[in-house]
Computed example of a mutant assay.
Amino acid sequence: MTDQQLTVQAISEAQRILEEYLRPRPQNNETILDSLVEVLGRPDLVVAVSRLQQQVRK
């Protein structure tokens, strides 16, 4: 999977999690935050975003 594909997949997952947060019903905000951290903090994603940022800076 390319860095771009990995990043788009993670953003899609994060959007899904945020949609869950925005639903008007009782929810566990800590669990939602944990899910976001899990998706956005994956080591492969962190590396991919770093590489993409380096490309933009060139």
Results as ranks from 00 to 15, higher is better:
residue 41 G to R: 03
residue 21 Y to P: 12
residue 29 N to G: 10
residue 10 A to H: 02
residue 35 S to L: 04
residue 26 P to T: 10
residue 24 P to Q: 07
residue 23 R to Y: 11
residue 30 E to G: 01
residue 42 R to T: 11
residue 16 R to E: 15
residue 4 Q to P: 03
residue 4 Q to D: 12
residue 7 T to D: 07
residue 15 Q to S: 10
residue 29 N to A: 05
residue 47 V to W: 06
residue 50 S to N: 12
residue 14 A to L: 01
residue 57 R to W: 05
residue 18 L to T: 05
residue 52 L to G: 08
residue 22 L to N: 14
residue 17 I to V: 09
residue 39 V to F: 07
residue 29 N to E: 10
residue 10 A to V: 06
residue 33 L to R: 10
residue 48 A to N: 08
residue 33 L to N: 11
residue 18 L to V: 03
residue 50 S to W: 09
residue 1 M to K: 10
residue 27 Q to M: 13
residue 47 V to E: 14
residue 18 L to M: 10
residue 18 L to Q: 08
residue 41 G to W: 05
residue 21 Y to F: 11
residue 13 E to T: 00
residue 52 L to I: 15
residue 12 S to M: 10
residue 1 M to I: 12
residue 3 D to C: 12
residue 36 L to V: 07
residue 18 L to A: 02
residue 37 V to M: 02
residue 57 R to E: 07
residue 50 S to H: 12
residue 21 Y to R: 11
residue 23 R to C: 13
residue 47 V to H: 10
residue 27 Q to H: 13
residue 29 N to V: 01
residue 29 N to D: 13
residue 41 G to V: 01
residue 13 E to F: 02
residue 5 Q to N: 02
residue 57 R to L: 12
residue 18 L to Y: 03
residue 15 Q to P: 08
residue 19 E to V: 00
residue 5 Q to V: 13
residue 54 Q to G: 06
residue 14 A to I: 01
residue 56 V to W: 04
residue 14 A to P: 07
residue 7 T to P: 05
residue 31 T to A: 15
residue 32 I to H: 03
residue 2 T to C: 01
residue 28 N to M: 08
residue 30 E to N: 11
residue 13 E to I: 01
residue 13 E to D: 10
residue 19 E to K: 04
residue 55 Q to K: 15
residue 3 D to S: 03
residue 8 V to D: 05
residue 8 V to G: 00
residue 57 R to Q: 12
residue 8 V to H: 06
residue 4 Q to T: 15
residue 15 Q to V: 07
residue 10 A to D: 12
residue 8 V to R: 04
residue 21 Y to A: 09
residue 39 V to A: 05
residue 20 E to M: 01
residue 58 K to Y: 09
residue 38 E to M: 08
residue 40 L to F: 09
residue 19 E to D: 11
residue 18 L to K: 03
residue 16 R to K: 14
residue 12 S to G: 15
residue 8 V to F: 00
residue 15 Q to R: 05
residue 45 L to S: 10
residue 3 D to Y: 04
residue 49 V to D: 05
residue 12 S to F: 08
residue 39 V to K: 01
residue 55 Q to W: 08
residue 30 E to D: 15
residue 19 E to S: 11
residue 53 Q to V: 15
residue 13 E to V: 01
residue 23 R to M: 14
residue 34 D to K: 02
residue 3 D to I: 15
residue 26 P to E: 15
residue 29 N to P: 07
residue 22 L to K: 13
residue 26 P to R: 14
residue 54 Q to H: 12
residue 46 V to P: 03
residue 26 P to C: 04
residue 45 L to H: 11
residue 47 V to C: 04
residue 24 P to G: 04
residue 3 D to G: 10
residue 21 Y to I: 01
residue 11 I to N: 02
residue 1 M to Q: 03
residue 35 S to C: 05
residue 54 Q to I: 05
residue 47 V to Y: 04
residue 30 E to Q: 09
residue 29 N to Y: 04
residue 43 P to M: 13
residue 1 M to W: 06
